[in-house]
Simulated scan of single mutants.
Amino acid sequence: MPAARLLDVTRTLRRAGRMATGVDRVELAYLAQFLSDDTPCFGLARTPLGYLLLDRAGLQGVQDRIEGRIDWGAPDLLSWSLRGRSTVGRRAEADFRRLAIARAAAWRLPRLIKKLPVPCRYFNVGHSNLSRRVLSTLNANGIDISVLIHDVIPLEYPQYQRPGSVDPFRAKLKCVQEWADLVIYNSADTKARAEAQMAAWGKIPASIVAHLGTVPPQSDPSKLPSGLPPTEPYFVTVGTIEPRKNHKFLLDIWDELGPDAPLLLICGGRGWNNDAVFARLDAMGPDSRVREISNLSDPALAALVQTASGSLFPSFAEGFGLPPLEALMLKTRVLCNDLGVLHEFLGDMPVYASVSDQYQWTRIIKEWANTPEMQETPTAFQGPTWKNHFNLVLSPRA
């Protein structure tokens, strides 16, 4: 039998009840993969009160709740004792405890790890729980450690991060450098950037590049709220409203275009460090050519993207870039910043224009607004598959 698998599901626990981000989807894809075959699998989750160990049945229970087949249960006394948690968060944490086969305070983590069969391979794909305590304990107990790195943007662009988040991220990456047996990178671009950081600290762990799998978006216009999609030409930009995504650039273009501009739909929740952009959005009147839309389901968002005149992606930096990839899979034109990582897996399918050239962006947006329906529907983009990803990651050679 191959080595048993231990999946860190700390991020899944912490994000319960929220709209899934790209990183969330990766952890859930690993959960689905591990539950789909016969290799023994377990889950590890960090809570404010310690660690939880789940077996296959427990992981299946987590998946059933995440996918809506079973409702989260009632909060327990321990979850009510924690401040700052949403009701769903408390319910999820209580259910994780109910589903766990064992739990331990932080200082008793070694006792928990000794319950795992050997050989065993630990997978952390959500950037959560990457601590010295966890990785050193796993290593000391002969557990093989594989970590997926999505990007090193916090170290390269600290000005775009939440206050106080850069140093903890650096500490996580240093733990990965010291303890990981294998680093999985979502792109060659991320690998080059991460290893440049690690080289300054010492050794560089063994690694592979495995592009993240993609699932063709399922469009369902019936899931859209009233008034959507617009009956006139419109553009979309998809992503959390945070400085790195560069919404300011698009707002500047729309200010320049004035009242004759096409509609711009900004699809995503509000993030951090972006008060100036939030103020501009709050000042938009009922006749504004910019609309802010949040909390759409995946099928509704896909329907909105599918009938747009174009999907705009002026992000300053990305580790992968799921929104332009999904737009291309929906046969929607994409205009994006000229980033190396996008060239890596999107090829020549998008139109690339540097965000240093606002004139070029404005010209293309005007052109596409006047030709909302393309003369020839392009072939749908075929994104990388999870099958190929897991063939690489779970190979005996990995």
Rank of each mutant, 00 (worst) to 15 (best):
Q218Y: 01
C175R: 10
L182A: 11
G58W: 02
D275M: 09
A3Y: 09
K203E: 13
S356N: 06
Q63E: 08
A279S: 15
R162K: 13
E367L: 12
L330Y: 11
R108A: 08
N274W: 02
H247V: 08
P324M: 08
G239I: 01
A94W: 12
V215C: 04
D357F: 11
R15K: 07
Y157I: 14
I70V: 10
N141M: 01
A261P: 06
I149V: 15
V209M: 08
D189H: 12
E232Q: 15
E256S: 08
R90T: 03
G239H: 04
V166M: 10
P154C: 11
W179N: 00
L155F: 06
T47Y: 03
D37M: 08
T47Q: 06
S146Y: 06
A171C: 07
F390D: 13
G239Y: 03
I204V: 15
P119C: 02
K245W: 02
G383I: 08
G68D: 09
D38W: 02
S207T: 13
L182S: 07
V277K: 03
V341G: 00
P75L: 02
A261W: 15
L7P: 07
G73W: 01
S146M: 03
F42R: 08
I184Q: 05
V341S: 01
R193K: 11
P75K: 06
E292C: 12
Q382W: 10
N186Y: 08
F42E: 11
R83L: 15
P324Y: 07
F169C: 10
A279H: 06
L228G: 06
V334I: 09
K245A: 11
L251H: 14
G321V: 01
T379Y: 12
L335Q: 04
A188T: 05
Q360R: 15
Q197W: 11
P233C: 11
G89D: 06
P117D: 15
K223P: 04
L148I: 02
I113Y: 01
N124F: 01
P217S: 03
K366N: 14
F345Y: 10
E376N: 11
P323H: 10
G84E: 13
G383F: 12
L112R: 00
W272T: 05
G17L: 13
A327G: 00
K366W: 09
E292I: 08
L250A: 01
K172E: 03
L250W: 06
G268A: 03
G213Y: 10
F313P: 00
T385S: 15
Q382I: 14
T12G: 00
N391F: 03
S36E: 14
S131N: 10
L148D: 03
W72Y: 06
V334C: 07
L82A: 05
N186F: 04
W368L: 05
G227Q: 11
V209D: 05
N124C: 08
K248V: 01
R14K: 12
V176I: 11
W254L: 06
V125A: 05
N370C: 07
P158M: 09
S294V: 06
G202Q: 13
E367K: 14
R56S: 04
P154S: 13
F42A: 07
L148R: 09
D24I: 14
S86I: 03
Y352A: 06
G310D: 02
V176G: 06
W201P: 13
R18A: 05
T10A: 05
R18V: 08
Q360Y: 02
A317C: 12
A102M: 01
R98I: 06
L82E: 09
C120M: 05
L31A: 12
